[in-house]
Simulated assay, not measured.
Amino acid sequence: MYSFARPLLFALDAETAHRATLYALGVAERSNLMKYVAQPPAPLPVHAFGIDFPNPVGLAAGLDKNGDHIDALGALGFGFIEIGTVTPRPQEGNPRPRMFRLPAHEAVINRMGFNNDGIDALVRNVGKSTYRGVLGINIGKNKDTPNERAVDDYRLCLERAWPLASYITVNISSPNTRGLRDLQDEETLRRFIGELRETQERLASTGKRKPMLLKIAPDLADAELDGMAEVLLASGIDGVICTNTTVSREGIDGEHAQEAGGLSGAPLFTSSTTVLRGMHERLGGRIAIVGVGGITEGAQAAEKIAAGASLVQLYSGMVYRGPSLIGECVEEIRRQGNPA
């Protein structure tokens, strides 16, 4: 079905197409028509950071920032869904246009800027959902919160999301919030993660423990990865997501190629996988890794697993391939060996 819908969607600007796709999925889910949209893959169980996943292929954050479409997305066959990034207070994000397709490169550039309705709206939406699968909630800071107080924003979101999330992702790697990536600096990260880990353990003491993951950038030098790995091992964090979008435009040309924002899609695959492999080597298998960035075919999902990931996530590849990419990735991972 997606092959028929794609030309219509690509006739729209990228952000309008994004909204139209989610609306159509919601209609299909409510009308019991999802069997015509996607065929969920057979189970391929994976156990990572204390959670049992029905398969290792998940949805990356960014597609459903407010948790408005969890039920429809859950019906596509993902092994887990990550919603957000969400901030304490609602914010509009950057001015439109702020999302651009680069079809010749199977890529997307976005500078959305954490546009979302705020943590309270997300909590309400999750509460109304009937989805009972693995749900990650990706948290960030408001753009007008200075970095010296950023931990307060993350702590508030962590506390509010805690009862509803299967796991929490801390996003300090988006290039679209000024200064956010500065939180990845080794000494800043040590203090920042230390405070959030204290909050995590305090919340865990009142009930079930929830894993906390850190999402990092692909634009990190070896020395930066060395320092980050040292901090993560010392902190006791549960997992790492490698990676967010890139600010690099190497090998990219044509219309929209020099738009500001984070680049995702096929051109990101090599750099994100290099960071994944490097972090796996540095962490020595002691912290689980989720591989995301540039997956447009099943073989690339399997390559992320071979590089050290326990799980993978999709986003921009879905723009170009549609929901069939989910099953293709699961089956190729299955063919090359169950990651569990």
Results as ranks from 00 to 15, higher is better:
G67Q: 07
N125M: 06
A5S: 14
A307L: 11
F192Q: 06
H18E: 10
Q336T: 10
V123L: 13
L314H: 10
G239A: 15
S166Y: 07
R197G: 00
V46S: 09
G262A: 08
T245P: 00
R98H: 15
A42H: 03
I51Y: 04
G127T: 14
L263T: 01
E187Y: 01
V57H: 05
P95G: 11
L8W: 10
A340M: 11
R178K: 14
L12C: 14
K210D: 06
A165P: 00
K304I: 04
P103M: 01
R124F: 01
L180D: 04
A60D: 01
P163Y: 09
M34D: 03
D182S: 14
V108A: 01
L164S: 15
D13Y: 10
V108D: 00
L232G: 08
T85M: 04
R335I: 10
R197M: 15
G298V: 05
I289L: 15
I289G: 01
E29H: 14
E148M: 12
P43Q: 02
P211G: 12
L76E: 05
N142E: 09
G261S: 05
Q184H: 10
P88N: 06
L12S: 12
T188K: 14
A217N: 02
S3E: 14
I81E: 02
G77S: 07
A234I: 01
N176R: 02
I237E: 12
L9S: 11
A257V: 00
L233S: 11
A229K: 02
S316M: 03
L283N: 08
G140C: 12
G293P: 01
K215Y: 06
S310Y: 00
G67N: 08
C242M: 06
R178T: 07
G285K: 14
T130M: 02
F49N: 07
Q184N: 08
R98Y: 13
T273E: 01
D226W: 06
G79L: 07
S3W: 06
